[in-house]
Amino acid sequence: MNRKPVELYVYGAEILCPSCVNLPSSKETYEWLEAAVSRKYPNQPFVIKYVDIHNPPEEESVKQFASRVVEEDMFYPIVLLEGKIVGEGNPRLKTIYSELEKYGYKAV
């Protein structure tokens, strides 16, 4: 495979978003998404990172988006795929898979 791995970011917080009370936590969503993508697209590398919106890393673009999530009261977790929002609150695998396939990922 000669392409650069797609980057997925899961933005969230330890405390559940008020509208997401019966949903998995952001961290659980991150772990679930990592496992699901690995199963669906084995041997097709991708990078997935979890970002705590209240304590983001120093990387400026990541920090700015984390601030945006807080300021705009977005439903988290928010999944970004190559900078595009592909899931908010309760992300759907079908949507994420569809976006990955635009980058050449093939389901096995």
Rank of each mutant, 00 (worst) to 15 (best):
N2F: 09
K27F: 03
P77C: 07
S61N: 12
S67F: 06
P42Q: 02
W32L: 10
K106Q: 04
E99A: 14
S26Q: 03
V69S: 02
W32C: 04
S61W: 09
R92H: 12
F75A: 15
P56N: 09
S67G: 08
K102D: 03
Y9D: 01
L81C: 11
E72R: 15
G12M: 01
V86W: 08
F65H: 06
P18D: 07
E88L: 14
S19N: 10
R68F: 09
G87V: 05
E72K: 15
P5E: 08
E7T: 15
Y103W: 05
V62A: 05
Y41P: 02
E58Y: 00
T95Q: 12
Q44E: 00
E101F: 11
N43L: 03
I53R: 13
P18N: 07
S26M: 03
C20Y: 07
S67Y: 10
N90K: 12
A13T: 01
T29V: 09
L8H: 09
E34Q: 14
G104R: 03
V79T: 01
K27W: 03
Y50C: 11
E71T: 15
E34N: 14
R68P: 00
E71W: 13
R92D: 01
V51G: 00
N2S: 15
Y30S: 08
R92Y: 10
M1L: 14
N90I: 06
G89T: 04
N43V: 01
N55M: 10
E58I: 10
I78S: 04
V51L: 08
K27D: 01
E14A: 15
S25T: 14
Y50P: 15
F65M: 01
N22L: 13
I96N: 08
A107W: 02
N90E: 06
P56L: 07
Y30W: 09
T29S: 10
V21L: 11
M1I: 14
E34W: 00
R68N: 03
P45F: 05
P57T: 10
Y9N: 05
F46A: 00
S67R: 15
V47N: 09
K27V: 04
E14G: 15
N22H: 09
P56E: 02
S98V: 04
M74P: 00
S25W: 02
C17Y: 05
P42R: 07
L100Q: 02
E99H: 15
E101A: 10
L16F: 03
T95M: 11
S38P: 05
L93A: 12
V86K: 13
E60S: 11
L100N: 01
L81W: 07
A13P: 00
V6D: 00
V70E: 02
F46I: 05
C17D: 04
G87C: 08
E31M: 13
P91K: 01
L81K: 12
D73N: 14
L23Q: 08
L33D: 01
F46M: 04
L33R: 09
L23M: 11
Y76S: 03
W32E: 05
V10M: 12
K102A: 02
Y105G: 00
P91S: 04
Y103P: 04
L80N: 06
R92C: 09
K102C: 02
Y50M: 12
V21D: 05
V10W: 00
I85S: 13
T95P: 13
E31A: 13
Q44C: 02
I96A: 10
C17G: 06
Y97W: 13
D73K: 14
H54N: 11
P77L: 09
F46W: 08
P24S: 09
V79M: 06
K27G: 00
L81Y: 07
A36W: 08
K63I: 05
